[in-house]
Amino acid sequence: MPGSVVPHWEEGLVPAVLAPDYQRIMDVLVGGNGICGEAMDCRQLAAAVGLEPVPAKVEGVRSKAKRLAARGWLAEERPGLFSVPVGRGGGS
C-alpha cells in the first residue's frame, strides 16, 4: 500500500506487522519459495512473489527490499542481493 511505514526491526517483531507486499518478500526469503535462507536478487524476488520480472516491477521490489534492509529486516549481502538475517524471519 502506498506510503506504508516499515518499522525498524527489533526483537519480538514478526513479519505480520508489515504491509502485505513486504510480507510476501519476507516469506520468499524465509523459505516460502523452497529455498530456505538463500540470498536472492531482485529479479528472482519479483518472479518469486508472482510479478513479471520486467524492469518496472523489479525496481518496485528493489525499493521494498532496500527499505526492509535499511530497517534491519533484511541483509543486503552485496548490492541487489538480499537475505534474511538469522532469527529475523519467523512467525509470519
Rank of each mutant, 00 (worst) to 15 (best):
residue 84 V to D: 08
residue 3 G to P: 08
residue 63 S to H: 05
residue 49 V to G: 03
residue 16 A to D: 13
residue 83 S to Q: 08
residue 39 A to Q: 02
residue 79 P to T: 12
residue 18 L to K: 00
residue 44 Q to E: 15
residue 31 G to H: 04
residue 60 G to E: 13
residue 45 L to E: 03
residue 57 K to E: 15
residue 16 A to Q: 03
residue 55 P to C: 02
residue 31 G to F: 11
residue 11 E to Q: 08
residue 83 S to H: 01
residue 72 G to Q: 07
residue 36 C to V: 14
residue 63 S to L: 14
residue 61 V to T: 06
residue 61 V to Q: 02
residue 26 M to C: 14
residue 83 S to D: 11
residue 49 V to I: 15
residue 86 V to S: 12
residue 52 E to Q: 12
residue 69 A to Q: 02
residue 41 D to N: 15
residue 1 M to V: 14
residue 41 D to L: 05
residue 2 P to G: 06
residue 20 P to C: 04
residue 72 G to T: 11
residue 74 L to T: 04
residue 22 Y to V: 06
residue 25 I to R: 01
residue 13 L to Q: 01
residue 43 R to I: 03
residue 45 L to K: 00
residue 79 P to Q: 08
residue 84 V to S: 05
residue 72 G to L: 08
residue 12 G to H: 01
residue 63 S to D: 10
residue 51 L to H: 09
residue 28 V to L: 06
residue 39 A to I: 01
residue 56 A to H: 07
residue 3 G to E: 14
residue 13 L to P: 03
residue 48 A to M: 04
residue 52 E to T: 13
residue 12 G to F: 06
residue 35 I to W: 11
residue 62 R to W: 09
residue 41 D to K: 03
residue 77 E to Y: 03
residue 20 P to R: 00
residue 78 R to M: 12
residue 65 A to Y: 01
residue 79 P to R: 07
residue 60 G to M: 09
residue 68 L to D: 10
residue 6 V to M: 09
residue 76 E to M: 12
residue 6 V to N: 06
residue 59 E to N: 14
residue 23 Q to E: 14
residue 80 G to E: 11
residue 29 L to G: 14
residue 50 G to N: 05
residue 91 G to Y: 07
residue 14 V to S: 06
residue 66 K to G: 13
residue 28 V to E: 09
residue 18 L to P: 01
residue 29 L to A: 13
residue 77 E to H: 07
residue 39 A to P: 15
residue 60 G to Y: 01
residue 35 I to V: 05
residue 65 A to I: 05
residue 89 G to Q: 08
residue 31 G to A: 11
residue 74 L to C: 04
residue 73 W to D: 04
residue 85 P to G: 09
residue 35 I to P: 00
residue 21 D to K: 02
residue 56 A to C: 03
residue 91 G to C: 08
residue 3 G to Y: 12
residue 39 A to S: 14
residue 80 G to P: 05
residue 84 V to M: 06
residue 36 C to D: 13
residue 74 L to G: 04
residue 66 K to I: 10
residue 23 Q to I: 10
residue 14 V to H: 02
residue 30 V to F: 12
residue 61 V to K: 00
residue 60 G to N: 06
residue 70 A to R: 06
residue 68 L to E: 11
residue 49 V to M: 11
residue 82 F to V: 12
residue 52 E to F: 02
residue 92 S to T: 10
residue 88 R to C: 13
residue 26 M to R: 05
residue 46 A to C: 06
residue 92 S to D: 11
residue 14 V to Y: 00
residue 37 G to H: 07
residue 52 E to C: 07
residue 56 A to L: 12
residue 11 E to V: 07
residue 54 V to H: 01
residue 30 V to W: 13
residue 75 A to I: 07
residue 88 R to P: 12
residue 61 V to C: 04
residue 28 V to D: 07
residue 57 K to G: 01
residue 22 Y to N: 04
residue 55 P to S: 14
residue 42 C to A: 15
